[in-house]
Amino acid sequence: MSATAAPVPAPAPSAEPRRRGRGHRRARERLVLLAQLGPITAFFAAFLLAPLAIFFVYSLWKLEGFHIVQDWSLSAYKEVITDPITRKLIWNTVKIGLGVSIATVLIAYTFAHVIRFHLRRWQAPLLFLVLMAMFSGYLVRIYAWTTILGNNGIINKTLEQLGVIDHPMTFLLYSRAAAIIVLTNFLVPLAILPIYAALQNVGDREIEAARDLGCGSRKALRKVIIPLAWPGIFAAWALTFIIATGDYITPQLVGGTSGTMIGQIVALEFNQSFNWPQGAALSFLSLAVILAIIGLVRLAGKLVVVR
């Protein structure tokens, strides 16, 4: 082999190793990239995509008797969509979710705005208090609210003693309002952080420019501050909307009948009826509705707020 190759002039011997060197470097870059993105990708694949895929498959099967039959059909979806109770529950869930997320964003924005623009010296301690609120347990807080809103709770007892009311207001607890109040209380700290971060990026100069160019303080808020902080506000809204609509503990503990949410029914289908196809179909249906609403709000934000 070497004997036959010898008379032929070596065709640019340097080109080959250099190319290999470059390929080598590219391979190494790929390896580094894989090492950086690999773990998180694997995590999401294993714990998010895989379960979703599995349940998607279940949603295409059906339950006969007490057995899941691997019979591909859309019957689970058909049942869920045509059931008026499901539709009502999804609507109820969306109402609670919108109520919670809008109330949360309004409260969180106000708080973040005040510490960003008016109480700058107290920013650090106030943000620390916000984080502290997130440390306290979820269930503990729900039970704390039952002692506040209940028939023998702080509000009713105080008002009774003041003579404002004769009988406790029973609608405070075990109602849609209670679910909204408790979830809002839980989510406000979570919403403050992205909004505050976004407001930090709104420069004083831009606000001054808005004032200089004819905006009163309300106009400056509407035309400059909110559009510039919109990504953070939208993120906070979407985050709280998803968490609120997905919750099934709070409505169970304080929601009563008017505060029943779709998550409770999904849990019921899986845990008690063992109707996994229906539960999965219900989950995907509500997921689609929620994503559609988020998409609409995103579009509306682009068209109305950030102009």
């Binding site: 100069r205 420019a209 200089d212 559009p227």
Partner: peptide
């Protein structure tokens, strides 16, 4: 009088353009 009530405009040191808007906007 607040800045918006004065017929005086300012060009700022860092320009302070509105980043979410185009040049024309």
């Amino acid at each position: 009088l607040p800045p918006n009530k004065r017929n005086v405009n300012t060009v700022f040191q860092g320009y302070a353009l509105f980043p979410h808007r185009t040049v024309a906007q």
